[in-house]
Amino acid sequence: MSKSYTDKDEIRVALEWGLEWGVKDMIKLCNVSKVYPNGNVALQDISIEIEKGEFVFFVGPSGAGKSTLAKLLLREELPSSGEILVNGVNIAKLKRHQIPYYRRGIGVVFQDFRLLPDKTVYENVAFAMRVVEAPRREILRQVPAVLHLVVLAHKSRSMPSQLSGGEQQRVGLARAIVNNPPVLLADEPTGNLDPETSWEIMRLLVEINRRGTTVIMATHARDIVDAMKKRVVALEGGRVVRDEKQGTYSCEETKSLEEREIGGLRKGFGLL
């Protein structure tokens, strides 16, 4: 699923930071806390590791900090303390101009779909590719393929307002994966959908995950989480209260290991 790098800038970023999406696609949070400027404590001392190809649920009551976690991963917000390491790179240290290239590695899906109301289904999906300046012929190949995957090929000329909620979310999903990101981040993707439509979306997420994409999903929906039998990280009041994988790794150890690997990666690039 890894993307081929045609953009010089992207390659440079990858070299400078060892941030080569698709190499390991390891996400690690080490003692991350987030306090908003107004004093709201959203996350407290969170340590989580997510490996390539995993399917992880973040669950917890409203206000537990699930969306804050998503914002941190997207680097919309910075942690107040602790580190978020992606392929060994502390993403807080990314420079402003590097952030877009980092974000291209994460597809995002939202509860409220966030489609552009005055663009067709096709254009909404193609938009994500135009924005990263994908070649035209790749857009022409990829957009129909993805629309086919989410079973919306027949509605590609419709406007979002002419679609049901489930269909709109499928467009959102298509847009999120059209650039083949190694990670898919979904914040309550089924929050606005009825149970049956929710399962359609879940089936698609499983399919996407089966193809190698790491899927991270925040949700309230207990029934879905219970039925899926995937890894569950439960948050409450900004703390991890349950994580099946907890204790199987330590931040310090893996960090140094990771750094050694990145060093090797850099040398490898240097030889090219």
């Binding site: 997207l74 402003r96 877009p100 974000r103 966030r114 938009f127 990263v132 650039n179």
Partner: peptide
Amino acid sequence: GIMKLVGATDWF
């Protein structure tokens, strides 16, 4: 907002 999330550069 959507452009930023899908990785558009500032100049784009």
